[in-house]
Write a protein that binds this DNA or RNA. Structure first.
Lengths: 139, 139
DNA sequence: TTATTTCCTACTACTTTAATATGATATAAC
DNA sequence: GTTATATCATATTAAAGTAGTAGGAAATAA
């Protein structure tokens, strides 16, 4: 219940590693995979999404790799989660009109809409920098 | 992302219907299925969990059905969600010690622990009565 | 030229989810 | 007592999602 996906967890770890090790250059997936104990092939899938959503940039070829586009302080968790798990979407309401007459769907829907806003708010207010900070302080 | 399951949504709708229609007796799954447009067989699965978790009671045989055990004001959404989706569980941390030395897992884990508490808090503070209230006010 | 890297298109194994199938058991109405 | 209507029990199925793998093309620095 309310479990996060391995994809997002791996993604966050990879980005944490990336931001603390990229320096002025890039970091290869090979290195991240080795240091974080994550499959390199699976990281490829993850970084494909991160690049597509303009969170990272890439350099191909030898000595290539990935780097963050923005500073960790400017990267919200919401955009990372949205990139890796798809954006928040409310429930479908296709035949809502016919349903809402006789069912409890409307009440439940409006409740969940609020719930999603609540979760989204949390994600919007936390940055990658804050997650990294936790890593070092192990608080 | 942060999407709720059909099982929980159906469960909430069924409980809403139940509490507004049980009166002093019980309501059959046949009736709920018909009025809410949900498969009766699927409702059986849902109510098996709700009964097991002491949210509803049942009466077998003709004229039988289900009823709430507590008043809607005393049923928190968290217990309903926990019954239908399993309780909140933190990430496994079996070989955490070996990992935490070199990886970013610890920082990410502590972040998600807070996140889960945040969500849990929301669920604990909302009752079935409040969801029902929304249904009528269609706010 | 070669080693290393991203990039691209699949494929696979596994788990979960939503739903169905079949029938046993209980009970009120007739 | 028979019957219709319920829950209860077990199990199966179809589709989707998740985690991870396979094989190689293209780029680029050493």
């Amino acid at each position: 219940m309310f479990q996060i996906s391995t994809r997002l967890r791996y993604g966050l770890r990879a980005l944490t590693y990336l931001s603390t090790n990229e320096g002025s250059g890039t970091v290869s997936l090979h290195e991240i995979a080795e240091k974080e104990g994550i499959s390199r092939k699976y990281l490829e899938n993850i970084f494909k999404l991160l690049k597509k959503n303009k969170i990272t940039r890439s350099v191909r070829g030898r000595e290539g790799g990935y780097a963050l586009i923005k500073k960790p302080e400017d990267i919200g968790l919401y955009e990372i989660a949205a990139a890796l798990e798809g954006p928040v979407s409310l429930l479908d309401c296709i035949d809502a009109e016919s349903l809402c007459e006789n069912s409890s769907e409307c009440g439940v829907r409006s409740f969940w809409a609020d719930y999603q806003e609540y979760v989204k708010k949390y994600m919007l207010n936390i940055t990658l920098a804050q997650v990294i900070d936790r890593y070092y302080n192990k608080k």
